[in-house]
Design a protein around this nucleic acid. Structure first.
Length: 259
DNA sequence: AATGAATTCAACCGCCAAGAG
DNA sequence: GCTCTTGGCGGTTGAATTCAT
C-alpha cells in the first residue's frame, strides 16, 4: 500500500483551467489570503485538488508575476546560475522576482539548452578539456566556461575528493576560484590566479549583452565586448559578490551530495 | 490548403522535508 | 521517536500551437 494521495481525486477536475475557475481562485485568495491549500478548493467552490490550486496561483494567477519573454540578460544570468546550482530551479528563480521556477525550467529546456547546443558549447561539457584550456575559457568567456558542467554530470569520487580539499581558510578569491575548480573539473587555481594577473588586460569576452532590461539588478553583471580589464574586474566582482551570499548554502549542498 | 513534424509550456506526478500531534 | 499531513520541488507529459514540406 503506497502513500495516500494528497487529496481525494475522485470527482476532481483536471486539465487546463477555465477563466471561471481562475476567477474563483483569484477572488478567494485576494479576499481571504492563502490559508491551507487543501481547504482552498472547497471554500472557493472549485473541483480541483489543493496542489493544483497552489500551482495555478504560483505559476499563473499571482499578481506580482512578470509576463513575457525573458530578456537576454536574464537568460545569461540563468546560464550562470544553472552552472552553479544545477537543476535547482526554485533557487534559480529566486534570483528573478516575478518569474516562476516552472517558467525558468521550461525556458531552459526549450530555448537555452537548444541555443547552447547549437553553439556547440553544451556538448563540450561531455568532452575532456585540458586545465589550461579551462582556465582560458574562464578568463575569456566566463559563461561558456561555466557551461562545461553538464546538468547531468555524475559526481565522481574524484570530484568528491576535490570538494573535500577546499581550503576554507584561504582568502575569498582563492576560495571562490576553488569553487570554480570544483565545477570545472581539474584546474590549477594558482596558475589561474597568475593568468588572471597576466591576461586580464587583454580580456575580451566572446559574447555581449545588449542591456535593455528594465531590471537594473540583472544588468549589473553584464558586460560588452571591448570592456576594459577594470570593467572585467568589476563585472567579476559583481558576480562573485552575489555568489558570496549564496556560497555557504551552495557549498553545503555540494558537500551534502558527497556524503 | 493539407498534413506531419517540431516546439512550447501549463499541468500533473511522485518524491522529499518539515512540522504537528 | 513515530506517523500523518502539507507544502514545495524537479522531472515528465501531452495538448495546443507553430513550422516545414
Amino acid at each position: 500500500m503506497g502513500r495516500q494521495p494528497c487529496c481525494d481525486k475522485v470527482g476532481l477536475k483536471r486539465g487546463p483551467w477555465t477563466t471561471e475557475e481562475d476567477c474563483k481562485l483569484m477572488n478567494f485568495i485576494l479576499e481571504n489570503g492563502i490559508q491551507c491549500w487543501r481547504t482552498i478548493p472547497k471554500l472557493a467552490g472549485l473541483l480541483r485538488c489543493g496542489k493544483s490550486c497552489r500551482l495555478r496561483w504560483i505559476n499563473y494567477l499571482r499578481p506580482d508575476l512578470k509576463r513575457g519573454m525573458l530578456s537576454e540578460a536574464e537568460q545569461n544570468k540563468i546560464i550562470e546560475l544553472h552552472a552553479r546550482l544545477g537543476n535547482r530551479w526554485s533557487k534559480i528563480a529566486s534570483h528573478f522576482p516575478g518569474r516562476t521556477d516552472n517558467e525558468i525550467k521550461n525556458h531552459w529546456n526549450t530555448h537555452i539548452k537548444k541555443r547552447l547546443k547549437a553553439s556547440g558549447v553544451y556538448s563540450v561539457a561531455h568532452q575532456q578539456v585540458e586545465p589550461r584550456e579551462k582556465a582560458e575559457l574562464i578568463l575569456g568567456t566566463m559563461p561558456e566556461s561555466i557551461l562545461h558542467i553538464p546538468d547531468t554530470e555524475p559526481k565522481t569520487n574524484e570530484i568528491y575528493e576535490r570538494q573535500n580539499k577546499i581550503d576554507i581558510s584561504s582568502d575569498e578569491s582563492t576560495f571562490l576560484l576553488n569553487n570554480y575548480e570544483i565545477m570545472c573539473g581539474s584546474l590549477d587555481v594558482v596558475s589561474l590566479m597568475n593568468q588572471v594577473a597576466n591576461t586580464s588586460a587583454s580580456y575580451s569576452p566572446s559574447f555581449s549583452v545588449e542591456e535593455s532590461s528594465s531590471n537594473p539588478s540583472i544588468g549589473e553583471s553584464s558586460y560588452t565586448q571591448g570592456d576594459s580589464a577594470q570593467q572585467w574586474g568589476q563585472s567579476t566582482d559583481a558576480m562573485l559578490s552575489w555568489d558570496a551570499f549564496n556560497q555557504l548554502e551552495e557549498e553545503l549542498f555540494y558537500f551534502s551530495k558527497s556524503i
